[in-house]
C-alpha cells in the first residue's frame, strides 16, 4: 500500500486548487505559484511544516518577487522580507510590518 505524497492546495474561487507536492517547498523559503485567474501567489513553509500563502507582488516595487524573500519570525509570528527593499509582511495577516498603510492579500492554504 502506498500513500499519496502530501500536496499543497490553495483556496481559489470557492475551490481548493492544487499547487504542488509539499516536498517541493523548502522550509524557511518560498516559491511562486500561478493561479488560474492569472494572479501569482507566494507560498511558504515554516520549519514546523506549516504552509502560508500571500500575494506574490511586492506592493513597494510592483515586481512579483515576494516568494523570493527570506522567511523570518518575530514574537512567534512568521513574516517574509521582500528581497528588493526588505519590507516585511506578516504571513498570517498580509500586513506590512514596516508600513501600516500597506498590506498584501492572504490566500487560504492547506496541506492535504
Amino acid at each position: 500500500m502506498s500513500t499519496a505524497p502530501a500536496r499543497v492546495q490553495l483556496r481559489c474561487a470557492d475551490d481548493w486548487f492544487e499547487v504542488c507536492e509539499r516536498a517541493r517547498l523548502t522550509p524557511g523559503r518560498g516559491i511562486a505559484a500561478l493561479l488560474p485567474d492569472g494572479r501569482q501567489a507566494a507560498l511558504f513553509l515554516d520549519r514546523e511544516g506549516r504552509a502560508y500563502a500571500i500575494d506574490n507582488r511586492d506592493p513597494f516595487t510592483g515586481a512579483a518577487v515576494l516568494s523570493r524573500g527570506l522567511l523570518g519570525s518575530r514574537d512567534g509570528r512568521p513574516f517574509v522580507a521582500s528581497p528588493l527593499l526588505k519590507q516585511r509582511f506578516d504571513l498570517e495577516t498580509g500586513r506590512c510590518l514596516d508600513d501600516d498603510e500597506v498590506s498584501v492579500t492572504v490566500h487560504p492554504v492547506r496541506i492535504a
Binding site: R57, L85, K86, R88
Partner: peptide, 30 residues
C-alpha cells in the same frame, strides 16, 4: 513570469517598469 517585461533602449533592452515610486524600507537601507 508575465510581469517581467522589457522595452528597447540604445540598441539593447531595459526593464519595462510599472509606474511606482520606490521607497526603501524605513528601518534599514537596502
Amino acid at each position: 513570469d508575465p510581469t517581467v517585461g522589457f522595452v528597447p533602449e540604445r540598441d539593447q533592452i531595459k526593464p519595462d517598469l510599472p509606474l511606482l515610486s520606490i521607497g526603501p524600507r524605513p528601518l534599514e537601507g537596502a
